[in-house]
Amino acid sequence: MSESKPKILTIILNFKTPELTLKSCAAALREMEGLDGEIVVIDNGSEDDSFVMLSHAAEQNGWTQNNRVRVLDSGHNGGFGAGMNFGMQARLSNGSAPDFYYLLNSDAWPDPDAIAKLRDYLIENPKAGLVGSAIRGTDDTPHPTAFRFPSMGGDFEAAAHTGVITRWMKNAVVRLPIPETDTKVDWTAGASLMVRREVIDQTDGFDETFFLYFEETDLCRRAAEAGWSTHYLPESCVVHIGSASTGMKTWSRTPGYWFDSRQHYYTKSKGSGYFVASTLALIAGGLIWRFRRLIQTLPQVDPDWFLTDLTTHLLRSPFRKTAARSPTISVPISEDQT
């Protein structure tokens, strides 16, 4: 870390949501007051009027003075990780690298001192490489964003939705109870996440093979392998609409890139055999839930055709070398896995 006041580069990605992005930028700009750093807004290949709207609004609002805010065009929609990498590679306006990168979703707005508290936590905890905020919805409902790494047991438990199984496999449950104090976690969501520059230097940033989903999980896993821990800080709070760009909450069917990203994560971290076994565990858990629905009045919890699509993807996986990143898929760069 530099001997002078630590510098922060806040990165906000836009994909066809310029109004929300401007609101997010205004909130971030307010919270960056008194902190040393800048904001870079990346239009991630929206192919609409977003870049022009964002650039014009930033100029009209006086945000571009002294390079407080820069609006850049990534040129294509390579996904969440690619967009964030583009922002990090932009560096500060003087060409230097910051001490910390603050990643903020375009549909998220930090509470007072939220950014400063993340920065201070990393300063006070030199072994911490990443720290994320507590997230709540616009209705003040807390969003769980503290997790264990995905696993075969975690997939089975999550798909089964059955209390006795959850109690039996409590140490495999991926979604942790929302911590009330600062807590070391395996990974946390990227809606409001501060990352130490050294983590990015040692991991080369996000793996751009992930188009969307699992990229923060993978980054936290590789950071852990390099000796850096990830933390959840409830004192830093952010309001997050969630899925404003992705439409995840209204999916009628799970898109192919989610299955591709899941395959890439497991294959990369634990091998192709583990990917197959974990997928079979996910199918088995899903069948338990579907059997329960036959004999009880229980809701549908997965998108339509989920098990069919999951099984089809598994059967085709031997012919798929890596997770596909199709440039024809029109999906956004901001995400919410909660």
Score class of each variant (00 low, 15 high):
Ala189Gly: 08
Asp43Met: 03
Thr338Pro: 11
Met169Ile: 14
Ala128Glu: 04
Tyr232Pro: 02
Lys184Trp: 07
Val276Tyr: 12
Arg320Ala: 00
Asp49Phe: 06
Pro255Arg: 05
Tyr232Met: 03
Arg91Asp: 01
Phe214Leu: 02
Gln300Lys: 15
Ser229Ile: 02
Glu157Met: 12
Ser2Arg: 14
Leu9Lys: 03
Tyr274Val: 09
Asp182Arg: 09
Glu59Cys: 02
Thr64Met: 10
Ser50Asn: 03
Leu9Ile: 05
Tyr266Phe: 14
Ser245Pro: 01
Ser133Trp: 11
Thr64Arg: 06
Lys184His: 10
Pro177Val: 04
Ala284Cys: 12
Asp186Met: 06
Ser133Pro: 09
Ser252Leu: 09
Gly256Ala: 08
Thr138Phe: 14
Glu3Pro: 14
Ser93Arg: 03
Lys184Cys: 07
Leu103Val: 07
Ala146Lys: 10
Phe15Trp: 15
Glu235Thr: 15
Cys237Leu: 15
Arg91Gly: 01
Trp109Ser: 01
Gln202Trp: 00
Pro234Trp: 13
Asp186Lys: 05
Arg316Thr: 05
Thr254Gln: 10
Pro299Gln: 13
Asp99Pro: 12
Gly45Tyr: 07
Arg175Gln: 14
Ala160Glu: 13
Thr166Ser: 15
Asp43Thr: 03
Ala26Asn: 08
Arg253Tyr: 09
Val52Ile: 07
Gly87Gln: 01
Asp309Ile: 07
Ala97His: 11
Leu13Trp: 03
Val131Thr: 09
Phe259Pro: 01
Lys16Arg: 14
Met152Gly: 09
Leu9Gln: 03
Gln337Ile: 05
Ser96Glu: 15
Tyr102Ser: 02
Thr21Ser: 07
Tyr265Arg: 01
Ala114Leu: 14
Ala223Pro: 03
Thr17Val: 10
Gly227Asn: 10
Ser106Met: 08
Lys7Phe: 08
Trp109His: 12
Phe210Met: 00
Phe100His: 10
Lys127Ala: 12
Gly137Tyr: 11
Gly271Cys: 05
Leu29His: 11
Asp43Trp: 07
Ser192Trp: 04
Pro112Tyr: 14
Lys5Leu: 12
Val276Ala: 05
Thr162Gln: 14
Ala90Lys: 02
Lys170Gly: 12
Met84Glu: 02
Phe86Met: 04
Glu47Asp: 07
Ala284Ile: 10
Asn105Ile: 04
Leu29Lys: 06
Asn94Gln: 10
Ala244Leu: 08
Cys237Ala: 12
Ile200Ala: 01
Ser50Leu: 05
Tyr265Glu: 01
His76Ser: 07
Glu157Ser: 10
Ala191Thr: 04
Ile165Asn: 10
Val41Arg: 00
Thr188Ser: 09
Leu122Gly: 06
Ala90Arg: 02
Ile288Asn: 04
Leu315His: 02
Asp120Ser: 13
Ala226Lys: 15
Met88Ala: 07
Arg136Tyr: 14
Lys117Met: 13
Gly129Lys: 01
Thr328Cys: 00
Gly256Val: 06
Ala128Cys: 12
Ser261Cys: 05
Gln202Ala: 07
Val239His: 11
Pro255Tyr: 07
Arg175Met: 14
Ile165Lys: 12
Asp336Ile: 09
Arg119Glu: 13
Ile11Lys: 01
Thr145Asp: 10
Val185Glu: 06
Ala159Asp: 14
Glu59Asp: 06
Thr338Phe: 13
Gly205Asp: 02
Thr162Gly: 08
Thr138Cys: 09
Ser229Tyr: 11
Ser229His: 08
Thr17Gly: 04
Arg167Ser: 15
Lys23Tyr: 11
Ala159Arg: 15
Ile200Lys: 01
Gly273Val: 06
Asp111Tyr: 15
Asp336Glu: 08
Ala284Gln: 10
Phe149Leu: 12
Trp251Ile: 06
Trp228Thr: 01
